[in-house]
Design a protein around this nucleic acid. Structure first.
Ligand SMILES: [Mn+2]
Ligand SMILES: [Mn+2]
Ligand SMILES: [Zn+2]
Ligand SMILES: [Zn+2]
Lengths: 137, 137
DNA sequence: GGTGTAAATGAGAAAGGTTTTCATTTATAT
DNA sequence: ATATAAATGAAAACCTTTCTCATTTACACC
């Protein structure tokens, strides 16, 4: 019952919010742009404005339900937050996104912040390349 | 004599190009947005259009004279290319930018790409935090 | 030093993703 | 059922960056 998820984070239960959540939970593209979500809603027969999709995604982000990737010079993509931090590999040919976790990198980042006198609040790491699938074509 | 630098990379020697180069070489803000460069030119008395600044910076980037950072969801910043790769720490309070090099991270990134079957072409890493200066205030 | 031609420039329009505005509709507390 | 604060849709605005196109300029050649 997602209604409770929404109430828990102080958001009223509305159709746009439920539907956006549903899209994110049932898609097989874990990483979606606002436009992707908007189109998926249309295909589902829900006429929800793009501005609302942006608003809802941003609220979900603030609420910690969703996280946002800001990809190099383009549009943002969103994914359901699963509580576990990870970083991303992006295929520059087909835009495929893969995920990884590397504790060595995570630890080095913290060490660098300390060295430089920074109180680290966040980091972003993207590895760009050509995916296996695109190499053979 | 910067004229030679320009000719060397196949660019005609023009006033906008010389002046943009001069700004980048003499500023004490190593990392500047196109707007920053534009304003610096104005203060210098040079009326060079913003579109030209963007064009010139992009050409310099293509020529390898300058590199571009694409910071999280905002405007790009440029810096003179010095031949050595480095990554960045960004202060979320004052926007200060510091640089670092970490061979362990560089190597782990390559290893991850291999593991995932990616032919790595590039990567981007930003550590966000509160700088020393901003912590005490 | 002139001349021709391709390249560069400036001004403004356009692009593309995202946010804001504001009138209308809706959720929810009472 | 009612009141009220919040949410929505549609369109306009925003912001950075790129493009268009008329005009100017750099530079190869005579
Ligand atoms: Mn992810
Ligand atoms: Mn730098
Ligand atoms: Zn691919
Ligand atoms: Zn700071």
């Amino acid at each position: 019952m997602e209604s409770q998820d929404l109430r828990k984070v102080g958001l009223k239960v509305t159709l746009p919010r439920l539907k956006v959540l549903e899209i994110l939970e049932t898609t097989d593209h874990r990483h979606m742009s606002a436009e992707d979500v908007y189109k998926a809603l249309l295909e589902m027969g829900e006429e929800i404005g793009l501005a609302t999709v942006y608003r809802v995604l941003t609220q979900f982000e603030d609420a910690g339900l969703v996280s946002r990737l800001s990809i190099d010079g383009g549009h943002a993509v969103f994914e359901l937050e699963d509580g576990s931090h990870h970083d991303h590999l992006l295929c520059v040919r087909c835009n495929r996104i893969e995920e990884f976790v590397d504790d060595v990198i995570e630890q080095r980042q913290r060490a660098i912040a300390v060295e430089k006198g920074f109180e680290m609040t966040d980091h972003s790491l993207y590895i760009y390349g050509i995916c296996r699938h695109c190499q053979s074509s």
